[in-house]
């Protein structure tokens, strides 16, 4: 097995809830409540879950857009959260991110050429003369044309903007990219283009991805391994084939059965979950999923299930497995 590039150890991220005149902390939203995983070099680990499960927070805390509350993140053995600001800045080009919203992820008053090239220049990784060539190279690699360099973001469609966002990350020659729902706001035909682009780039450059998404069909297509999150915890993690062929956690099973499949003749046994996701500010005791779980037993209400390996790197946190 290849070496781990990212190691996440019992990572926690709590956001304070403030209230009152003095804005005192009156509670915490436990967005990420102790997750551990590793991402190996060259693979794509997907984090799936519904809104509010903490998947984006994990992505942002890993590359220290947010400071952790507890735990550790190692990038090639370097503890990201212990670095000084200047050291972190030096490491930034190696860990990049592609954002969800192609409309807010580009500065409307900055030309594409500047948006893509500025970081390279700021880090002193290129001379001013070479900059334009490097930017054009990155744009073309992402399926854009050299004449796009002088345009402003509003002149592009959503799919093209997403390509620009990818070019902006790619030009720094990163090893690791967090893809935060990069295709979820795109139309199907454009979505396929971007997914193929991401997979091509991964092959060419040996990139490592953390792919954050709520769309299981896209996740199945792009991942090497998949981790399913619910209310701040990973409830199941396994290789792509294992997870989609033999889902063990009732939540994973419900998620999978809820995805509509474009085949009118297919009749499936669907597990419809009752109710809504509880608030992460006040999560249920015991197994956090027990309030919606169709198979919940008494033990689930009291004891937190252990996240354990049930064989072959298939991890699951459920009393019933």
């Amino acid at each position: 097995m290849s070496e781990p590039l990212i190691e996440v150890k019992n990572l926690k991220k709590y956001f304070p809830i403030r209230g009152g005149v003095l804005q005192r902390t009156i509670g915490y939203v436990k967005a990420v409540d102790g997750v551990s995983f590793t991402i190996n070099k060259g693979e794509t680990l997907s984090l799936v879950g519904e809104s509010g499960c903490g998947k984006s927070t994990v992505g942002r805390t890993i590359i220290r857009l947010y400071d952790k509350t507890d735990g550790d993140v190692l990038f090639k053995g370097i503890p990201i959260h212990s670095l000084k600001k200047s050291e972190l800045r030096k490491l930034r080009p190696k860990m990049q991110m592609v954002f969800q919203d192609p409309f807010s992820s580009l500065n409307p008053r900055l030309r594409i050429g500047d948006a893509v090239g500025e970081a390279l220049l700021d880090h002193g990784l290129v001379s001013k003369n070479e900059l334009r060539d490097r930017v054009i190279e990155a744009l073309e690699m992402c399926g854009l044309a050299s004449y796009h360099i002088d345009r402003y973001p509003h002149e592009f469609s959503g799919g093209q903007r997403q390509r620009i966002g990818i070019a902006r990350a790619l030009i720094l020659d990163p090893e690791f990219i967090v893809l935060d729902e990069p295709v979820s706001s795109l139309d199907v035909s454009i979505q396929a283009q971007i997914i193929n682009l991401l997979m091509d780039l991964q092959q060419q450059k040996g990139l490592t991805y953390l792919f954050i998404s709520h769309d299981l069909s896209v996740v199945e297509h792009i991942s090497t391994r998949v981790a399913v999150m619910y209310l701040g915890n990973i409830v199941e993690m396994a290789s792509r084939d294992e997870l989609f062929d033999h889902p063990l956690h009732p939540y994973t099973q419900a998620l999978l059965s809820a995805v509509p499949i474009p085949d009118p003749d297919l009749k499936r046994e669907r597990i419809i979950l009752e109710g809504d996701i509880p608030s992460p500010a006040n999560p249920p005791k015991g197994c956090k999923f027990h309030t919606r779980c169709p198979f919940a037993k008494d033990i689930c209400k009291e004891q937190v299930p252990e996240f354990r390996d049930v064989g072959g790197g298939h991890y699951v946190a459920c009393h019933l497995v």
Binding site: R60, I63, L65, L88, R89, K90, L91, R92, P93, M95, Q96, M97, F99, Q100, D101, S104, S105, L106, N107, E118, A119, D122, H123, G165, R168, A169, L172
Partner: peptide, 17 residues
């Protein structure tokens, strides 16, 4: 709150920039 400001952090731009 805009993602492009988050992006400047990810890109490691200097504060002045």
């Amino acid at each position: 709150e805009q993602e492009f400001m988050l992006a400047t952090e990810v890109l490691g731009l200097r504060d002045s920039k």
